[in-house]
Amino acid sequence: MHPAPSVIWFTTLSGLGFGLLFWLGLGYPVVTGWAAFAFFTIGYLLAVGGLLASTFHLGHPERALRAFTQWHTSWLSREAWLAVSALVVMAVYGAGLVFFDNRINGLGWLGAAFSLGTVGTTSMIYAQLKTVPRWHHWSTPVMFMTTALAGGALLAGQSRFALSLLAIAGTALLGHWMAGDRQFGASGTTLNTATGLPGQVRSFAPPHTGSNYLLREFVYVVGRKHAGRLRMLALVLGFGVPILCLVLPFNHWLAAVAVLSHIAGIATGRWLFFAQAEHVVGLYYGKR
């Protein structure tokens, strides 16, 4: 799949943002006033920033409101609802903390649920797609959600949770890769099932010598050969470095390094998430 920057930043940042909001909702840390304002601002900047980024790949953003209509079948629609609910609920909850020093636990928990739910729905947009075997697996939501939780904990300064969650999320990502590498083969979809033709089938000529949307969008093979190294990089930056920073005695610079490194690592992981994903339509073009 084509690794569009918009979706990479969307999933990376909003995941992180909602992860942070999740912890804030649960009251880790319990902050009020300016401190709360700072935390919430960061959470909103990331979450909303991510959401905005995602609208860049829309052909008609002006019609975005329509995306709320199909929650009963569409994960994208559900994501829209949950994201907005999370942002609204957390806004009220945050306002309580910032301006009234007042923490309404119920709201917090609800907001936390919505926030994590948002990440879940995002992951389901990908996980639901049979057409991309690598994504069509339970490890996809697990990977998205653990990553969000870990990143959130890191931002929320919850070193205790962060340490373990980073470890878990790193493992989840690794697991997602290992599972993913087997998925296409396991899916049973081949050029034979795609064409119904028996025996040894080979794509002789594409329908057009000119390029087309399908090839640009779904048959992205550039840079796959670096996958191994990039995976290592993603793990080290996304989880290794942050964990290291956390075990070292606390210091603001280290914290900053941990966060930035984490973001870089996750972004790398998300690039691979798309770049390595093979859409079955590639088979028709003799590509994968």
Binding site: M1, H57, L58, G59, H60, P61, R63, A64, R66, A67, S74, L76, I125, Q128, L129, K130, T131, V132, T189, A194, N212, Y213, L214, E217, F218, H279, V280, V281, Y284
Partner: peptide
């Protein structure tokens, strides 16, 4: 007229039967 051009339906189609128009963005 209702299409936001998100492309998800094309992702979901196994057969490559949907194409986003580069000019109209639908």
């Amino acid at each position: 007229s209702a299409c936001i051009g998100c492309g998800l339906c094309a992702w979901a189609c196994p057969y490559g039967a949907r194409e986003m128009d580069p000019v109209e963005k639908v």
